[in-house]
């Protein structure tokens, strides 16, 4: 029997809550996150009618947090997929082929690590202009250096292993070796760094939107909601607390899920199917 994996379950449940909230938002609330503004109900505290209270324009914070999850998850997952694809292909190929390609990728990675990624994303956003597509590009191009580093060091330690050499002598092409022998054996660390990356991207989206360079105000992004709530933090703290809590739960959920999945995918814990 497999040992109970608390990280996996807790992370899975938290992530599932966020995903269900994002996917089923229209069924979980009857209000619209943008157009159902009513100044009559501005800055109402949480109640039976407005579970998370209302903001300065009288919009339901609960509704906006639900719809905000759609943006945060899209940004987090899509940008991390872009990061993983870039980081893995550069890191694995650099370490496997070596030579000038390795030097080039290494140099590039070091440059990327030296530039604070949020500043770099800010610069890209300033060029591309605000909006979801430019947010995905900006965050997808700026956060691959750790994935690349881990993929590179994993490849360096794996490529001397007998099974990688055997694959080469059995006629596998380089790409096939990378895909079938190297990649599956670095799933653990890559998954962990990717889930951390999703969390980081959710935070970066919030930060960029908070600075006004991400999602434009009427649309419900958690970062943009925090910007709006900044001035009312004393009068209506709920308008800031609930988007903040949503960010916290999402980031924590993905991080726990990453840790849990790493243990789960470890082949040494896999028992034979009888």
């Amino acid at each position: 029997m497999r040992r109970f994996n608390l990280n996996l379950w807790l992370g899975g449940v938290l992530t599932l809550i966020v995903i269900v909230g994002a996917v089923f938002a229209p069924w979980l609330t009857s209000l619209d996150p943008v157009f159902d503004a009513n100044l009559m109900y501005a800055e109402e505290p949480p109640s039976g009618q407005f579970w998370f209270g209302t903001d300065e324009q009288g919009r339901d914070v609960y509704t906006r947090v639900l719809y905000g999850a759609r943006i945060s998850l899209t940004v987090g997952i899509v940008s991390q997929i872009i990061n993983s694809v870039i980081g893995l292909s550069l890191g694995i190929s650099a370490a496997y082929w070596g030579g000038w390609w390795d030097d080039l990728v290494n140099g590039l990675t070091n440059v990327m690590l030296a530039i604070p990624s949020l500043i770099f994303a800010l610069a890209i956003m300033a060029i591309l202009g605000p909006g979801l597509p430019s947010l995905l590009i900006a965050l997808g191009l700026t956060n691959w250096s750790w994935t690349c580093r881990i993929a590179r060091s994993s490849t360096l330690s794996l490529k001397g292993q007998g099974y990688v050499q055997a694959a080469s002598t059995l006629g596998y092409s380089d790409i096939r070796i990378m895909w079938t022998q190297l990649l599956p054996n670095m799933v653990g660390p890559i998954l962990v760094i990717s889930t951390l990356g999703i969390g980081a991207a959710v935070l970066a989206e919030a930060a960029l939107s908070f600075l006004g360079l991400g999602i434009r105000p009427p649309f419900p992004s958690w970062g943009a909601m925090l910007t709006g709530a900044r001035e009312l933090i004393v009068i209506a703290p709920w308008a800031a607390v609930f988007p903040g809590l949503a960010i916290f739960v999402t980031v924590l959920g993905f991080n726990l899920l990453g840790d849990g999945l790493r243990d789960y995918l470890d082949p040494h814990m896999r028992t034979r199917q009888q």
């Binding site: 007998g162 099974y163 055997a166 002598t169 006629g171 596998y172 599956p184 799933v187 082949p267």
Partner: peptide, 22 residues
């Protein structure tokens, strides 16, 4: 590589590192 694979194959020293664990 494909033709070469039918000429010679190798048995490695460390049986713990010579099989893909996945």
């Amino acid at each position: 590589r494909m033709d070469r694979a039918r000429i010679a194959q190798m048995v490695f020293q460390d049986p713990y590192a010579s099989l893909n664990p996945r």
